[in-house]
Design a protein around this nucleic acid. Structure first.
Lengths: 214, 214
DNA sequence: CAAAGAAATGAACCCAAATTCATATCATGT
DNA sequence: ACATGATATGAATTTGGGTTCATTTCTTTG
């Protein structure tokens, strides 16, 4: 025998793997999942196409892994903010604001992470983190309701709506192109306010009227 | 000369075209844009694959046409509700409710119509109708603000958020599977309430506090 | 009914992009 | 330096599905 997988090789291997994952992130943030090809990723990582397949069994699993890496980090950040001291209202608006700020920094990537359909494995991985975000918001809403800060409501539905509002208002197809930072800030505040009021406002009398007449 | 395109043939042609468009609707409502193939559509329409190409120049244009047909109808329905007599609050909640009710009747189709990415032509067509829905909601919000019913706000952003909340809360990936009608009704009311309160609630003092501290 | 012109058919073709694999290169231990 | 085993390479292959087109079937008119 004349070979043994040494420490150094192990590191190089891990490093190459990491570079490929980073390359996915970069390519996806430029062209989205739709336009991302394995050859592009290899190019961006500085390896040959075939090398990608020595590290990952398929495009779907590679991309899913890359998404999971990023998404978990984002979930952690938002969850940390949501777990701070303070009223439920301030925690919710801070969490929403942080999510929003980070998303608009890299809109294309954010949209790909949260919504853009792709290979089945990617969709499955995304669903996990989508739910994780929703769970963070849902917990804060429940806390607020328990503390009497927010009215009784379907917390799961409200959390899903918050995600939806953020997605569509900030980074989805309806979001305005915002090359300008001050507009972006204002937009984030509008959306944060929308979400906070939605979960915190006491039901309007007019709502009941509408319900009884329709 | 020994042939002329007669009335009857013209009708048969139009009929076949219509059947193909209907078949797209059916196939998409079953497997979404992702899984919809031209061969399936042809099969569902009871014609050969090649026939599809005698009526439409490409898959993208066929699917875009089919989407436009449906979406315009939905926009008209929602717009009609939004144009009724009544307070802005009642018009908005009725419009949201109608959108929601119709969407849950055919969730897969609704999601495909409003959000699922597909061929470039389809995306382009969808954007038009997405905006059309947003415009309907935006107009009601503006009316409400002008009448002093709603507080001042970024109406365009709020309208986008309403679309997003509906999409995610009702028909998107986070929406609960709801085989049961009563749950569906309750969900629709939760989401309608969420949207109405978001646009109609007076800003909370706590919001200002949060803004000044962050 | 025969001829002429359209429309329908579906198997063959084409293309883009994922995946493979024979070959080349690199690491290790004697 | 050499032998051995592992990793990297990228051109060639495979594949899924949209599109084409030579052939068949249908309609109309003389």
């Amino acid at each position: 025998m004349a070979y043994r997988r040494t420490e150094r090789v192990e590191e190089q291997l891990q490093d190459k793997r990491d570079r490929i994952l980073q390359a996915v992130r970069q390519v996806v943030s430029e062209v989205g999942f739709r336009g991302a090809q394995v050859a592009m990723v290899a190019e961006a990582a500085g390896v040959a196409t075939g090398t990608v397949y020595r590290h990952f069994p398929s495009k779907g699993e590679l991309f899913a892994k890359a998404l999971a890496l990023n998404a978990q980090h984002e979930v952690d950040v938002v969850a940390a903010v949501a777990a701070c001291e303070g009223s439920a209202a301030s925690r919710l608006s801070d969490a929403v604001r942080v999510f929003a700020r980070r998303a608009v920094q890299a809109r294309r990537l954010a949209w790909a992470m949260i919504a853009e359909p792709a290979e089945a494995e990617v969709d499955a991985a995304r669903l996990v983190y989508r739910r994780a975000f929703a769970d963070v918001f849902e917990k804060v809403i429940r806390d607020g309701t328990a503390a009497g800060e927010f009215p009784a409501q379907n917390a799961a539905a409200s959390a899903a709506c918050v995600i939806g509002a953020l997605n569509e208002g900030l980074i989805g197809p309806l979001a305005p192109e915002a090359p300008d930072l001050s507009n972006t800030r204002a937009l984030i505040e509008s959306i944060t306010a929308f979400c906070l009021q939605a979960v915190s406002a006491k039901p309007y009398p007019s709502l009941r009227l509408v319900e009884s007449t329709s």
